[in-house]
Design a protein around this nucleic acid. Structure first.
Lengths: 204, 204, 204, 204
DNA sequence: AATGAATGAGAGTTCATTCAT
DNA sequence: TATGAATGAACTCTCATTCAT
């Protein structure tokens, strides 16, 4: 981490992330990843050992990235309601802008989270976002604007779920309801709905 | 469709549903499905033509099933808030009890909903649940208990999302938060959280 | 065994025997075996599962064959010295005519006899030849022409060794001594030497 | 050759000898040899050019070693029978103590002695042992204790064969006869058998 | 309706070797 | 003298699919 990795290594990681997000572990093609990265196929093995280990590395990479983003959030000074709205908004926006993350999570879940569960690197790092949610909740309760008894993890899951499902199932939903959910207005309208719903659930 | 299918055919369909739900289209093995169904591998081809068509059939099967369940709901007589709580609860419970459905949806989304989009059988059938939500919303607005301007599709997406994410990402979440989300109490607690959050968002 | 195997199966087995004998397990090429057998490469996997299992099958096949040959020997009526000379001669001649057997044994030994050791089919079957040697030894001792105290297994090993080494190392030896050991006269001369040496060691 | 080689070079040679002896030319891994020798993989290429040339070097090395040992034998003063027994014993003991030599020979034979045949270094050097056998035979014949007409090369082959086969096929034989041939007593007993058999074949 | 035999295409991976420093 | 990075060729094996009955 401290030494600069060879450029090839991060090119591979980046290509892998995209390919795995789109096609999953089984569906992804090693040759395709190599080509996207502009390197020889065997270099993947030189650096990562196997397709499986490359997948794991890509997964850890994407988790590290989102946690780095979360760590940048600074909302301690804002009023609790504003802060919470910002957190929900951040969560929504991050997914809106990182389809790779959704793709990887989708596949990971589809396979029982095997890799997440066995990756110390992922398990080790706490989620800064959940901790921010927890502290904001406490501030809101103290300020008398939020109900007591809200579980921060449950809150996180419901907020993440509302956003995640929208993006992960967007195409399925769009097809079934015959409504184009990719339009900026559609996204923005749903974003407001999510924030409103989340906050409504917190008020006394 | 109206005639009773040969036993072998539904055995295949059932095995396919499980296998595809667990491993996705690319990861599933035709040989494995045949073995689970207790039939010769070639029978799949005899009945369904190809792996892809079998996947599609399994997908349509699972959609038909959930819509049949939805169609049984009769909540016109209940007060709007009760009815809405029941709808949210139904949505949550169905996912709790049908991991196959989640698995298939996950894979489907992971691959751009290609099959859902091109399946007339799926697109043709409206979702009875969304229609029930819409009518219940209208009743609630009329009765003065719900806000105006709630979009039923957005409401459906947020409700489904809160539930779906919990079950689809349960293992990932359990691992990251180190909390066993499979315990009945954990499920029940989150169920109440979802219903409370959904309804809070509707009230005036 | 009781049902006639598909022709392809024994064609594969035969081709495998030759290829493995010539190049060993690591050096042999699955594609080459398939081509020699005139079948599709994947049929090997259909029938034998893997290169390793095919190697094992070929090894068992070759052992079964030599034991079948040994079982045909009937020397109970001959005088002990004649019988023993015949046994030594048989052992020599068999190797002379079955380079595949030598090749397979060579490779097997070179790798610690891993497959022989773990093949119940090979370990189960006793060597009829060693039993014949033992009984002939006993007859000779009783008749007063052979010494007491000769161990039949040691005798077998020394006899087999004299023959085996000649054929297995023939090319190396020929090169070092600059003498063509493939000439029929050379073979015949050495054959007589082996029989004479073996019998000399037995006489009182 | 006359100058002391760099340490790395002989470390490679030694590692190569072991690896090739155990796995043969095809089965040996260049990376494994480098690791055993504690050097970078590319150094093998720097010194030896290719895997094949390294194999050849290891083979020549091992031949040079055995010939150096043979050259040390001084038996001109002993009575012919004693001298011959010592020669047979030496041949047996050398193999007992140099499994690498057996391994390399095994592989070499398994592949038609290609490298021995084309190595001037190996072909050039006569075998001191065979010459000693020849001279001892002549002395014995002159002394009236050995038969006339024994071919020294045939004698050498049979003696080497009895020993070589025991060690090279030890594991196979042990497995088939269910007798532990690695026990010191088993080795010693067979050693006596070999010497007795060889000498019996020479007596008038 | 049902099956064992057989196949073609392509996937992941290994491995000796070379490049560049 | 020594090495980390990179590559091309080839190999084993998997898998959906078809043939023939």
């Amino acid at each position: 981490m401290s030494l600069p990795k060879p450029a090839a290594q991060s090119a591979i990681l980046s290509a892998a992330r995209t390919e795995f997000a789109q096609k999953g572990l089984a569906g992804a093609r090693v040759a395709e990843i190599a080509e996207r990265a502009g390197v020889n196929k065997q270099l993947l093995y030189y650096y990562f050992g196997s397709k499986d280990q490359l997948y794991r590395a890509a997964l850890e990479d994407v988790y590290a990235e989102i946690r780095a983003m979360e760590r940048k959030l600074e909302l301690d000074q804002s009023p609790p309601e504003e802060a919470m709205a910002a957190l929900v908004g951040f969560s929504f926006d991050y997914l809106a802008q990182h389809p790779d993350f959704i793709g990887l999570l989708n596949h990971e879940n589809a396979h029982g989270a095997q890799h997440v569960r066995t990756s110390p690197a992922i398990r080790r790092t706490n989620s800064p976002l959940v901790e921010l949610i927890a502290s904001t909740l406490r501030r809101g309760v103290r300020a008398g604007v939020f109900r007591k008894g809200i579980d921060p993890i449950e809150l996180y899951i419901s907020v993440a779920g509302m956003s995640y499902f929208f993006f992960s199932n967007r195409l399925t939903l769009a097809s079934i309801f015959d409504r184009d959910l990719a339009r900026p207005e559609a996204i923005d309208s749903y974003r407001r709905h999510v924030i409103a719903t989340a906050l409504a659930g917190l008020r006394r």
